[in-house]
């Protein structure tokens, strides 16, 4: 999920602070062993999510999937270790995920990349370029759906030619088309003034 423009109070909090709090909350949740405080934490996380003014429609399917997974975990752990222990694990996971959704949906992708770049900045002493790594991350997120589309097109074309379930027949054109996309994207990066030598 990528955050849309958000004008809530949480969107104004720096991304670094939000992720730092998320890290601390994650650790804290694992130190709590009773379901009652975890239930309170869950309510707090829901309140935070609502205050973040995120598009609930965007969250609907992820939340439904999450509830199904958490439900399965509760049942399995309930049978194996007891219902209270199952509830502790389920509440912990649910609370953590809702906190994570709240942070990620109130932080733009651009802010996340900038944060990632800062966090990865020590890598420059090892010869790596954090700006390039950050761009690579952005390109991966951007082009995964694009590559999926190309894959479906290639598979459809191969099916139309009678090549059913032939991984090689799909893989070769997929790789060739991916390389072409990579070449064109590299050209676009140059054309749009990206300087690969820049470091933060």
């Amino acid at each position: 999920m990528i955050a849309a423009k958000n004008d809530s109070w949480l969107a104004l909090v720096p991304a670094g602070a939000k992720f730092a709090v998320l890290l601390l909350v994650s650790i804290g949740l694992y130190l709590v062993g009773h379901w009652q405080p975890l239930a309170v934490a869950l309510l707090v996380s829901i309140a935070l999510l609502l205050s973040a003014k995120v598009a609930l429609r965007q969250l609907l399917w992820p939340l439904v999937s999450l509830l199904v997974i958490v439900g399965i975990i509760w049942v399995l752990l309930g049978i194996q270790t007891g219902w209270e222990q199952g509830a502790v694990a389920a509440l912990r996971l649910l609370t953590l995920c809702i906190f994570a959704y709240t942070v990620s949906l109130s932080t733009t992708f651009d802010q996340m990349l900038e944060l990632f770049q800062k966090v990865a900045s020590p890598l420059k002493y090892l010869g790596a370029n954090p700006a390039q790594i950050s761009l690579g991350l952005a390109l991966a997120v951007r082009f995964i759906p694009e590559l999926k589309r190309v894959y479906l097109e290639v598979r459809e074309a191969q099916f139309a030619r009678g090549l059913h379930n032939n991984p090689l027949a799909v893989a070769v054109p997929l790789v060739i088309r991916s390389l072409r996309i990579a070449e064109e994207t590299a050209e676009a990066l140059d054309a749009r003034g990206y300087d690969s030598t820049t470091t933060p």
């Binding site: 990528i2 849309a4 423009k5 733009t108 992708f109 651009d110 761009l135 952005a138 390109l139 997120v141 951007r142 694009e146 996309i181 064109e184 994207t185 050209e187 676009a188 990066l189 054309a191 749009r192």
Partner: peptide
């Protein structure tokens, strides 16, 4: 470019 899909770098239009 001819194929705008390959020219759009970031996952979100605004970005």
């Amino acid at each position: 470019f001819q194929n705008p899909a390959n020219q759009i770098i970031m996952p979100l239009v605004r970005d």
